[in-house]
Design a protein around this nucleic acid. Structure first.
Lengths: 153, 153
DNA sequence: TAATATTCAATTGCTTTCAATTAAATTGCG
DNA sequence: CGCAATTTAATTGAAAGCAATTGAATATTA
């Protein structure tokens, strides 16, 4: 029955490390008034300025039940605006505001702080990164009809 | 500003992979009537039969605000009982019931199912495991070594 | 010993997360 | 074309998860 021992589970350290890391972010994110989930939404928008709600959910592996309230919160704070699609009114587009763009400068030092508090060297971090994305790819690559992106070197 | 790109964050795949893995557990855990958090509490109790609420929280990296309601749920389901400590009435001990012990047999095939759905080989899994525990150790080992942490005013 | 500090579980309030459902818009099929 | 199936965002309900606080018990210290 050793397979039921906590220390033999891979799921548990994954789950615990994820929460630990989010907790490490919290004090830094508090300074700019974001939660962790709001932060990763902003990361996406700082890259591409606008994105569909559906595409945002796919990117972050979150469904509408999570995305909708988070984006609404960001809208309340003035960092984004939401627009219904014109050619397809079912869709919703999230767009960065000037205020949201301005926040990017204040967020710039957050990854720096986080890098120092994680006790992994560069090689370990890159290995971890690769393995995690392998999990995220899922058990079957068949969904997207064959693998298109090559593995991280 | 590349450090603010989502794909350059280590936190994100950790966060996403953790949720994906929990999601993979859900259909199997549904069969035995547990949530993921309830499951990892049961994993601990299947190993040691009883544990203090504080120790349980330390082991799982969860605080009383999470532990208390989860253990109460398990008590409602009849898998555990709770007892106040006798020599120290502040403490709470969680004990496995016969029903909880019986559940172990039904849970035995869950890790087997999970192992197959994770597309990592044994070596990759063990590397991931090691790196995750390194994160869980935290940036400072001060707690155990007794080393004094520099005063931050 | 008396006063103060600390520890512990529980509670409160807020946000996240997901499954399941709903409602509206679009697409596909006959 | 008209009707069914699908897609999309939103909503609802339940369970986490955490920061902050509370209240009671225990430890420390003056």
């Amino acid at each position: 029955m050793d397979i039921l021992k906590l220390e033999n589970q891979l799921c548990f350290p994954l789950y615990a490390a994820s929460r630990e890391l989010v907790k490490q972010y919290t004090p830094h994110l508090d300074k700019i008034g974001l939660t962790y989930t709001q932060y990763i939404v902003m990361l996406v928008l700082w890259e591409q300025d606008q994105i569909g709600a559906k595409q945002l959910g796919e990117l972050l592996h979150l469904d509408s039940g999570t995305i909708t309230p988070v984006v609404k919160k960001l809208e309340q704070k003035g960092f984004v605006v939401r627009h219904r699609g014109v050619e397809d009114e079912r869709t919703m587009t999230v767009m960065l505001t000037e205020s949201g763009e301005a926040l990017k400068k204040q967020a710039a030092d957050i990854p720096v702080h986080m890098a120092t508090c994680l006790n992994l060297n560069v090689k370990e971090a890159s290995t971890l990164y690769r393995l995690l994305y392998k999990i995220l790819q899922g058990p079957d690559d068949d969904r997207k009809s064959g693998r298109r992106r090559s593995a991280t070197p």
